[in-house]
Write a protein that binds this DNA or RNA. Structure first.
Lengths: 109, 109
DNA sequence: CGGTATCCAGTCGGATACTG
DNA sequence: CAGTATCCGACTGGATACCG
């Protein structure tokens, strides 16, 4: 039956289709554990509030985990879970496909 | 540089992140060329207008092509382009990942 | 420093009705 | 049969301001 496939792909799409989610994940792959501010520095174009929201969604989806140190000023670290690590190969396949085919998207003159 | 990767993955995400786009592509993989009405029959839950919009976007992105026969009543066939075929493997990888990890999304009780 | 709480604008999926 | 033209509600990304 095809319906199971549709459910499965929906799971995947839900997890990576946020505007900045792939960017955040790729940053954590390359940089490892990062504090909120460091993450913000790596992704300068993202809005403060937007970053918080996207992180929360990724956390709810268990792709990343948050560690809060109870200090002043606050210190919070974000890192990938095993689940988050497991999607790395897929993201790089997406990069690959986008690379290979980006020319085809140019509108003919 | 990482920015090129981000551009590439954006291309990929733009192309598959519509609510029904993956479903439409998967249907065309399995069924081959289909008329509008047949496509609608295969995907009963989609709204008529929504299907038209998603098809138009896929067509603009060159993943599918439309062939109109100038007859009454109208007859239109949709099929995959080579570009559309080329993303098939990626979609099935997405299904695979979603399958393997869907249990992890269940909220703990 | 990192997080809430609001509010706002744009986009997207969808409902309905009409056309050739 | 397939498509266009509207209109609408919901969601999402983002701007701003304030809190611990």
């Amino acid at each position: 039956m095809m319906n199971q496939n549709l459910e499965s792909i929906k799971v995947t799409l839900d997890v990576v289709c946020g505007k900045w989610k792939a960017v955040i994940l790729l940053t954590l792959y390359e940089e490892g554990t990062l504090r909120f501010g460091e993450l913000k520095k790596q992704i300068p174009l993202i809005n403060h509030q937007t970053l918080i929201k996207q992180l929360k969604e990724l956390e709810n989806d268990r792709l990343i985990k948050k560690k809060s140190y109870q200090v002043v000023p606050p210190k919070v670290e974000y890192s990938l879970t095993d689940y988050g690590q497991s999607i790395k190969g897929l993201l790089y396949k997406m990069i690959e496909w986008g690379e290979q085919h980006s020319e085809q998207n140019k509108t003919p003159s």
